[in-house]
């Protein structure tokens, strides 16, 4: 082994991280080689000086309070975790509610549509006509005054209520 090989083994030698035979080889070389002895001492000094760097002790009060600090952080973490945990069930519940609403409306629309289909063949009721109308104008386009004048106020109010619902649902679904 030459000096370069030995110097490559300096750190593991000092770290006691060499096989016994390698340790013997390095030790034998060091006995006869001044250069490698100096190099070995330089590396040892580095390790000693690095090891000697201390961390200032933050004090007993800090250590005493530390577990409580962790508990505090954990409390916040847990509640955040809990929020995260309930976020999806909440979102699922909201989606289900919307789907239920959609299903109900779809049912009414289907019923309205079917009524319309049979309107020519059979005599459809005025109620089904009103429901069929739900698919037509948007809330903004409606001529409320005219409806109010032409029809029975109770029927108009009921129609308006249904249209309001439709508009609200439309708005909700537009956001998805």
């Amino acid at each position: 082994m030459n000096c370069h090989d030995i110097q490559e083994m300096t750190v593991p030698y000092l770290e006691l991280d060499l096989s016994p035979s390698a340790v013997r080889q390095v030790t034998d070389h060091l006995e006869d080689c001044e250069t490698c002895r100096v190099d070995m001492e330089a590396v040892r000094q580095v390790l000693v000086r690095v090891k000697g760097r201390t961390v200032p002790d933050p004090g007993e009060a800090f250590w005493q309070a530390f577990p409580e600090q962790v508990r505090h952080g954990l409390g916040r973490g847990s509640s955040a975790g809990m929020l995260y945990a309930v976020r999806w069930p909440l979102a699922l519940a909201a989606s289900l509610a919307l789907l239920m609403g959609a299903w109900l409306f779809a049912g009414i629309w289907d019923w309205g549509g079917r009524s319309d289909q049979f309107a020519g063949a059979s005599k459809s009721s005025s109620a089904s006509k009103h429901i069929a109308q739900q698919d037509e104008p948007d809330l903004a386009d409606m001529d409320w005054e005219r409806e109010w004048d032409d029809e029975d106020p109770d029927i108009v109010l009921a129609t308006m209520a249904r249209r309001l619902d439709r508009a609200t649902v439309d708005r909700l679904f537009r956001g998805i």
Binding site: V70, G73, G77
Partner: peptide, 27 residues
Amino acid sequence: YDLAYRMLDNHADAADMAQATFVQAFL
């Protein structure tokens, strides 16, 4: 705390990071 201090070189960051380490571990 020692590891965090040696990585971050100041008490405030080391204290925060040591706390965060335990919080993550327990969570």
